[in-house]
Amino acid sequence: MPASAVSLVSLEQMCALIGGRLQSVEVQQCLQAGLRVGDGASVHGLPLLYRDYPPTSQRAFPRRILLIGGIHGDELTAVSVVFRWMKQIETERFQPFQWRVLPSTNPDGLLRQPSTRVNANGVDLNRNFPSVDWQTDALDYWQRRTGRDVRRYPGPSALSEPETRWLVAQIEEFSPDAIVSIHAPYGVLDFDGPDEPPEQFGYLRLHQLGTYPGSLGNYAGVNRGVPVITLELPHAGIMPSERQSRKIWTDMLTWLEKRLPEQAPPQTDRLENLPWESQPWH
């Protein structure tokens, strides 16, 4: 996995930190989740964890789903529900997808007291992705449209942050057919990318929030053509019930199976069709 920084903390230490911060995730649960320390780390050297799940069904070309939690560190449920769904993936008897799960992608923000939306450099990671419009619009949008809101600072440049560089590396390496990103607390279903969006997953109904310079939906959904499903849970600190989260999960899997039927991969790699000359990080 491509490197962005060196982790200074072991998996055991990281699980102790996560378990100490989240009431819904026990230390032992984290340790038993099969997570691995990625070849990258946060600003403060905390490991960026991941786990790959192969499909349990016999398919020649299983579709790939990237599941991301905790881009905003103060959205605690966005991390906790990913751990819940990791257990769900393990128990699925018929699992047609290949998953890569990144449960906590802003650990510095999560573990601060109090937790913060931004990372340790004060950057909103969900405004730091290298969307085509970042160079021309990101800082101007932040200044004029948000009034220099410190919670939405996009950074000095696209990909300035090690966490964002690592996330982009996962997208390039894993080449997902869809991305699911968990947030809170708007209580809606958002969607960016090609094709018609889903109308409802569980109690989350479609309400498209729009794209922003440097957002994951803009970068992956609009620029790269990878469907990005954003699940905005209703509360940042109160977990949905088991029943509610299971319904969201099953509705999402049903939609993904219809949206991503098995087929042989195209002869031309998706990356070859990108407008590289317009990308500010190239």
Rank of each mutant, 00 (worst) to 15 (best):
A169E: 06
I182H: 09
P176C: 11
P194I: 01
V180R: 07
I182Y: 08
Y186H: 07
I171W: 06
G187L: 10
I171D: 01
P194F: 11
E199F: 15
Q170D: 07
Q170V: 10
V188A: 06
A169F: 12
P185E: 07
P197C: 12
Q170E: 15
E173V: 13
F191A: 06
Q170G: 11
V168C: 07
I171R: 01
D195A: 14
Y186L: 14
F191S: 06
D190S: 13
G187Y: 00
E196F: 04
I182S: 05
Q170A: 10
F191C: 00
P176W: 05
E173Y: 11
V168F: 04
V168E: 01
I171N: 01
F191M: 09
D190R: 04
I179L: 09
Y186P: 04
S175V: 14
L189S: 07
H183L: 01
A178F: 08
G193H: 11
P198Q: 04
A178E: 04
D195R: 12
A184P: 03
E173F: 13
P194R: 02
F174I: 05
P185I: 00
G193K: 02
L189D: 00
F174S: 05
V168H: 00
P176V: 09
E199N: 09
E173R: 15
D192P: 01
L189W: 03
A184I: 02
V168M: 04
G187M: 03
P194G: 08
D192W: 06
P176D: 10
D192L: 04
I171M: 08
H183I: 01
F191L: 10
S181V: 04
S175C: 12
E172H: 15
E196D: 08
A169Y: 13
P198L: 09
P194S: 12
V180P: 05
E199S: 14
Y186N: 06
I182C: 07
I182F: 14
P197K: 08
D195K: 11
D177G: 04
P185A: 11
E172F: 14
E199C: 09
Q170M: 06
V188L: 14
H183W: 06
E196R: 10
L189P: 01
E172N: 15
I179E: 01
G187A: 06
A169P: 05
P176R: 13
V188R: 01
P198M: 08
A178D: 03
S175T: 15
Y186I: 10
S175Q: 15
A178L: 09
V180E: 05
A178I: 10
I179N: 02
P176Q: 12
S181W: 01
I179H: 05
L189R: 03
V188F: 09
S181H: 03
I182N: 08
Q170W: 13
E196M: 09
L189Y: 07
Q200C: 14
P198N: 11
P197N: 06
F174N: 07
E173W: 15
P176Y: 11
D192N: 12
G187K: 04
E199Y: 11
I171Y: 03
V168D: 00
I179V: 12
V168R: 00
D177L: 07
V180M: 14
V180G: 10
E172Y: 13
G187I: 02
E199T: 15
L189M: 10
H183Q: 13
I182K: 05
S181P: 03
A169L: 13
E173I: 03
P176E: 14
P176N: 13
E173C: 10
Q200K: 15
E173M: 05
A178Q: 06
Q200D: 07
F191D: 02
